[in-house]
């Protein structure tokens, strides 16, 4: 089943008086349960594509379909609700809430989603990512790899249909990077989690089911 589909997706920015075309008509389709890497040189539109499909940003034109539903023109509230219930995000710089403990970081999206068993579920997810013994630590007390694993646990909190990762290993050493990708692989294979990951690294890209190459705002065929 097609879970993400974009049609002639365009995104332009104005840099002073100059129009910069970050995406210039992207047509793509990702199946449910796929583990896809988005690759390409810097400035080719990888992150822009991820932000648009993750509903963090709005396109200049074109359409985005998630599970067959056109989500292009949803209002801010609907987009927030969609992100909360159907999307999980993993960012390069972890972006955890520094004032919350590891456990609270993972609980928080479930609290927002009014889930009742959020404490048990948070523990379960932290055990899954191998941090069951770090529940009450603050993010600042963890290594980069551990912080990224907390981010992954948080991204899975509301059982999202799509997990979007923007260079999740970009800030990690090789060992930690491999750990994270293996964790993604495990989630994908054991739980059928759809994962779309932006990466610069051909080795990491090579560990996914499929690589989509971007160049100058379009998909390279």
């Amino acid at each position: 089943m097609e879970i993400i589909k974009t049609s002639n997706l365009k995104k332009s920015y104005m840099l002073g008086n100059v129009e910069v075309k970050a995406l210039n008509g992207v047509d793509t389709s990702i199946e449910q349960g796929e583990f896809v890497a988005i690759m390409g040189p810097s400035g080719c539109g990888k992150s822009t594509f991820l932000n648009l499909t993750g509903m963090l940003d709005t396109p200049t034109s074109g359409e985005i379909y998630l599970e067959g539903k056109d989500v292009t023109n949803m209002n801010s509230n609907m987009r927030a609700e969609y992100r909360l219930k159907y999307m999980g995000f993993v960012f390069q710089f972890f972006n955890l809430f520094n004032e919350l403990t590891v456990m609270e970081n993972v609980m928080f999206p479930m609290m927002l989603n009014k889930r009742s068993n959020y404490k048990e579920r948070a523990k379960e997810l932290l055990n899954l990512v191998g941090l069951g013994d770090r529940l009450n630590h603050l993010p600042s007390e963890l290594s980069g790899g551990q912080q990224q694993r907390v981010t992954i646990a948080r991204s899975l909190a509301n059982d999202p249909k799509i997990l979007l990762a923007d260079e999740p290993t970009g800030n990690l050493d090789t060992a930690s990077s491999i750990e994270i990708i293996e964790l993604f692989r495990k989630l994908n294979q054991e739980q059928g989690q759809t994962i779309v990951m932006v990466t610069h690294s051909p080795e990491i890209g090579g560990m996914t089911d499929r690589i989509i190459h971007f160049r100058d705002g379009t998909i390279e065929h």
Partner: peptide, 9 residues
């Protein structure tokens, strides 16, 4: 991040 994970305006 709050908004990215689904907190409304």
């Amino acid at each position: 991040i709050l908004k990215a994970i689904g907190m409304k305006d």
